[in-house]
Each structure stands twice: as C-alpha cells, then as structure tokens.
Amino acid sequence: MASQGTKRSYEQMETDGERQNATEIRASVGKMIDGIGRFYIQMCTELKLSDYEGRLIQNSLTIERMVLSAFDERRNKYLEEHPSAGKDPKKTGGPIYKRVDRKWMRELVLYDKEEIRRIWRQANNGDDATAGLTHMMIWHSNLNDTTYQRTRALVRTGMDPRMCSLMQGSTLPRRSGAAGAAVKGVGTMVMELIRMIKRGINDRNFWRGENGRKTRSAYERMCNILKGKFQTAAQRAMMDQVRESRNPGNAEIEDLIFLARSALILRGSVAHKSCLPACVYGPAVASGYDFEKEGYSLVGIDPFKLLQNSQVYSLIRPNENPAHKSQLVWMACNSAAFEDLRVLSFIRGTKVSPRGKLSTRGVQIASNENMDAMESSTLELRSRYWAIRTRSGGNTNQQRASAGQISVQPAFSVQRNLPFDKPTIMAAFTGNTEGRTSDMRAEIIRMMEGAKPEEMSFQGRGVFELSDERAANPIVPSFDMSNEGSYFFGDNAEEYDN
C-alpha cells in the first residue's frame, strides 16, 4: 500500500510504541512475548500442572481467558453494579484439565481477579502490559475465525453469508486497541457500523446529549479505520460520505453494504499476525530463551520457528480426527482463516481442507461434555516452508469459486491468482447506482469489472525454506488448481455463540 510509510507498523501498534527502528520493534515485541511466557509459567505453578498438562491447549485457553477477564475493567465495573446470582464479580476462573488415573478430569478453578492481575503485572515488570493482553485477544479471535462461520451475524446486519472472507476479527472485544483495529476485516468494521446506525434509528437519543457526542466521535473513528483499509480513492470518498452524514440511517447502511461487497474484489488491507497460545510461549521462556534479547516478529519467520520446536497437546472428542484438529489450530496460529487453501497447503506441506470436510468441533470443551471418553493427542503445528504475512489485500483475480465463501483475504505475501467468483459478486451490483453516491458507485463498479483474471497478485513473492531466515531465496510455489480455494466452501461450520 502506498501510504505504508505514514502508518505505524503493526509491531508498533502491538507494543504501543512511538516510531521505533526494526531492532527496537523486535525487542519490544519480544518483551511482550516474554511477559506472556513468564505469566503462563507462574500460572502453571499456581495450578500445580504437570509439564504435559501445561502444554494442553484447553488449559492455555482457560488461563488466557482468566487474565483477560481480570483486566476487563468495563465488564468488571458492570458486574459490580449489576450483581447477578451466583456470579462473584471479583473472581474469575474456568475449567482446568488434569490427568488422573490414566483419565482426563475437569476441575473448575476460581481465583481472585486481583490475584491474577498481581501475577500478570509481576510477570511483566510491574506494568499492565496491555500489548500482551491484546495479543491474547487476537489469538482467540484468530481461533474463532478458523472455527466458526459468522453466517447468522452477517444475515442479521443485512449482509450476504458468502462475504465471510471479510469477517476477520469479528469476535475481537471493543477494547483491543490499535492492534485489534489493524486485524479487523472490512466486513467486521461494516458490521460494527451498521449495528451502531441501527441503534440510532431505533433509539432517538442515541446521537443526542453528552453521551451522543461520545457516540458520534466513536462512529467517526470507526469510519476512519474502515476508510484506511480501502485502497481505492472511490471507496475512500464513499467512506467520507458515510462519516460526514448528519443523521446516519438506511442510506448509510446501503452504502456500507455496497462497500463491503466491493471489497470482495477491490480488497481492503487487513493486517495478519501470528499470535500463538500462551502454552507455546511459556515452555520456550522456561527453556531459557530470551525473546527480548533475541527479538521477535509476528509477521516473519519467528512464529514458524517457534511452532517448529513446540509440543502442544489437545483434548480430542471420541469421533474427532486429531489431524483435522491440528489443521484448525495451525490455521489459527498463522492467522489464515480466509487465505486461499492452495497457498496454505503449499506452505504447510500437507493438504489443507475446507472447514466442512474437517471432523472436528471447536477447541474448547463445553462444561456439560462427558470427560470419560476424552483422549488427548499432539497437535501437528509444523510447516514445510515459511512466508511473510501481508497486510495488503493483493490485486484481484477471477477463479472458480464456491457456493460458500466467494473470495479470499490473503494472509501471506505469496504470488498467486486470487480466487473470487466474479459473476456471483457482480450480480449483486445491478441497477442500484442512484442517489448521492452514484458517481462513486459507478466508478467502483467500473474498477471491479476491469479486474483481470490473468493478473498475478504479489508478483514474484515466494515462500522460503525454514533454514532461509533472511528470506534470501524465494520459492514461487505451484498450486494444484483442481483443489478448492475457499475454506468455508459450501460450508456447515458451527455458528459462533458468545
């Protein structure tokens, strides 16, 4: 993207840094990872977990959730003011799984939030270390993106479920800051804005008074975040219109849905970061690795190297396929839920299948599930090659597409044709070009129609051997075009429920 120079890199967003050079960025990201790792080690000690239990991804998720809940100030305040039966607002906890007599047992633990905050700050040299908290939120978000298709949420806001490739980060909490905003897809931002506008339509006082002023500035800020994701002048001009509207209503909703559809071809720039579970960072720190000293990046080879040398386990339900569970977590670790499966298959070195073909449910185990038949197995999170994460949407291309997802959002900077089903997408653009945004709409449609099938995206960008740390010898991959490109292809993934 041309304006790259004016933006802070995501590592800076990730670490609240002012302008830093590459070495400083690597050190501050490393410091953040160190903090998460030290916190995780301490929690495993508190909970008396064995090494194996500490490497269980379900335990990692519970521990991450506990610290996120302990620092969720708004919710904590709300819980104190609106006490609900049987919930102690000062405590947080969740299921911890232990191996007892050759069987997995679930144990519900409860801790004072104050105590968890103390352990977290102690692991982070006394700081609140917001960057580390956001990092864990993005890992949870990436896992949700890989596990669930947001059909219901899309339909509720009037969008087409086939636009799911635009929904990265749709389950990120509001408090995820600049680093969170960077990884949100165009569809996620559109959905947040539509929800806001709908509230304004239904509630006369939404934009009024002292609160209304705050609401208005939040609305304009979200519009600017979305505008910054678009790469064409016409899309940005249309966002200006939406932002400046005196009284946002149905016309703005129409414009936003139009823009979301246009992003299936004229893709937005959305950041991709490899955020790993805390149970990967903990053992690495415990083994003596100093992330701050060595430096770390979320968008280069580092996460690949770390996963190459990590042992992570997962509980497996009786009829689940461990290899499929591994694929789910591998995609989440690489922030690749909406990437082209052919690119992923090449990088991973084994075939990556669409969601609907995987015999696996989510990673988390519900409290009512029976533990008797639970097994555990090693997650295979290694890769054959590594590639640089991208934040450009890439230019655009036609490809055989599917009944489910009709476009992709690249996660890796790797040369390819970008699949999208042009006739299906263009069919949504018939007729409606009147109104105050008509010239911009016409211009956007013209650009979409001009998108050429034979153009290559990320020209000359390749993948790298894991021994090639400096990215000196790019390998331009070859793809098996007979395979499906979309992950949520004609899909039956479970729906995400809060």
Rank of each mutant, 00 (worst) to 15 (best):
V155C: 04
N432S: 10
W330C: 08
G249Y: 09
D88K: 01
R461W: 11
E292R: 12
R470I: 00
L379R: 01
S326R: 13
S165D: 14
L307T: 10
Q399M: 04
G93F: 07
N397M: 06
A263D: 01
M448P: 03
M196W: 04
E80D: 13
M105S: 08
F291Q: 05
D421L: 14
R384M: 05
G180R: 06
G126F: 03
G180S: 07
M136L: 15
A179C: 10
M196G: 12
L49E: 04
N334C: 15
W139G: 11
M196F: 07
I475F: 07
Q398P: 02
F230V: 12
P173F: 06
K214T: 03
A387I: 02
G86V: 00
M32D: 05
I119F: 08
V476Q: 07
G86T: 11
G485L: 02
E80V: 13
G132E: 04
D468W: 01
S269Y: 04
F338C: 10
G282R: 07
S297Y: 08
C275P: 06
I301D: 03
G288E: 08
Q409M: 13
N205R: 00
S170Q: 09
A123H: 04
D491C: 11
L466R: 00
S482Y: 03
D88S: 13
R118M: 09
S217F: 07
Y219R: 04
E434D: 03
F291M: 09
F429V: 01
S287H: 11
A178M: 12
E64H: 07
K293H: 15
T134E: 03
G268F: 07
S482D: 14
R446K: 13
A178V: 12
S60P: 08
G185R: 09
R461K: 09
S413R: 12
T215L: 05
Q235W: 10
L315T: 08
C44M: 08
L193T: 11
M331I: 14
F464C: 02
K113L: 05
I25P: 12
L61Q: 06
R152F: 07
E454G: 14
E449M: 06
R204C: 11
Y496M: 11
D112A: 12
W104F: 15
A427P: 06
V363P: 03
T390W: 01
D480E: 11
M159E: 03
C223L: 12
A366P: 08
A271D: 09
C279P: 03
R19E: 01
S217D: 00
D112Q: 08
S413Y: 07
G282Q: 08
A27T: 11
W104C: 13
P474C: 01
D51K: 00
E220Q: 13
Q58L: 05
L266D: 03
S482P: 00
D160T: 07
G362T: 06
T15A: 03
S457Q: 15
T390N: 12
G17C: 15
L226A: 09
P322W: 03
A442K: 09
G394E: 12
G5F: 00
M448A: 06
G126W: 02
D51N: 15
D340S: 14
P410G: 04
R8Y: 00
P410Y: 00
E210Q: 08
L341P: 08
R389P: 03
D372T: 10
D340Q: 10
I253V: 11
